[in-house]
Simulated assay, not measured.
Amino acid sequence: MGDLEVLQQHHGRGALSNRDGRFEKQQNHLFDDGWGTLEDALFSPPPIQTRVHRDATKTIINRNQSPDIPFDQSINPYRGCEHGCIYCYARPTHAYWGYSPGLDFEVHLFKKENAAELLEAELRKPGYQCKAVTIGANTDPYQPIERRYQITRSLLSVFHAYRHPVALITKSALVMRDLDLLAEMAADGLAQVFVSVTTLDPRLARRMEPRAATPQRRLEAVAALAAAGVPTGVMAAPMIPALNDHELEALLEAAVGHGAEFAGYVMLRLPLELQDLFREWLDTHYPDRANHVFSLVQSVRGGKNNDPTFGKRMRGTGNYAQLLSQRFKLACRRFKLNQVRRELRVDLFQPPPRAGDQMALFT
């Protein structure tokens, strides 16, 4: 027998393989050596446990210069994401650290345990200019390990103390834990939250996002945030042609019914290794429509599986992309979403005094 690709659905995991990253000099493949070892790998795989590593980063705020992203500064408390979303565009970034964008991305996680200290140091720099910071632009700040490490909580505590504006993006109901901080900040125009809801179908959600909160729990989080006075929106992201795109209007209607004020959407993106990982997943779970899904994906990406061009990568191009865009606009108008543009305040920023600081002469 020749090289074999072993695809398995591990309980609570999204990816079906652990392909080597694009920077690796060697590529590993399972091979039947005649001694029965391949059968062991196929039918008796070892359990997969989450491993958390220390991220020794020396800076915490990322500066963004992409013209199609609506924020200038962001923080990601973790690298990798235990939610295991098969469509996650951040998966290929794991290759930079010598890990696979497949199972490794959701198993080998990195925590920035000194994030709060690094943030305070940045905010106290003499030349720092206050701009809103988005937490969770790459991986989810409220993924399951946040319950233990509370790094996102520590960051919010710093922003709260410094009266610094912050926006959060998550698909976890754990965001409700921090309602005390978020509600106080929102009262001063310093906080807003986007909750990602990809589908209302719990079965599809469990397959696509195996360790994320159920759709109903996410909507409950929207309701709790809105009731606490936190401006809250919903991201219908990603919209996957022929898989969840038909739910767009229902998603937005459900969001409004739970108190959402604004909404957005993103077309499915398949950069680098994600193309093969997503195809494996489709062939396994939805083999009857896999070819159709990819045909439509290519129709919005100029005949390719991915188009990273600024201005095109978020929404796509062509007839199908235009139709989805029009549906979104009409639904927002119908459900009265995005009627008010809320700008986070930057004029309240003030580093709190530290012990030993000289008091101001005049107040």
Rank of each mutant, 00 (worst) to 15 (best):
S295Y: 14
P353Y: 08
L123T: 05
V293T: 02
H10F: 11
R269Q: 08
L30A: 10
L243T: 01
M208Q: 13
D140Q: 11
L7I: 08
L174H: 12
D283Q: 06
E117S: 08
Q49P: 03
N306A: 08
G264S: 05
C81A: 13
L118F: 03
R207V: 15
I48G: 02
C88F: 01
L219C: 07
R342T: 15
L4E: 06
P141I: 11
S299M: 13
G229V: 03
Q26W: 14
N28H: 15
Y78Q: 06
S74E: 05
G264C: 01
P45I: 07
R341D: 13
T93W: 14
Q358L: 08
V293A: 03
A212S: 15
V197I: 15
Y87E: 04
Q358I: 02
L42T: 00
G2E: 00
P165D: 07
R148Y: 09
G257F: 15
E247S: 11
R79T: 04
G12F: 06
L296T: 04
I240R: 12
I69C: 06
V222T: 02
T309G: 12
G316M: 00
I169C: 06
Y89Q: 12
Y99I: 04
K329N: 09
G302S: 12
L296I: 09
M1D: 06
L123N: 01
A250M: 07
F335T: 10
V158C: 05
D33F: 03
L123A: 06
A263R: 01
A237I: 09
F294E: 15
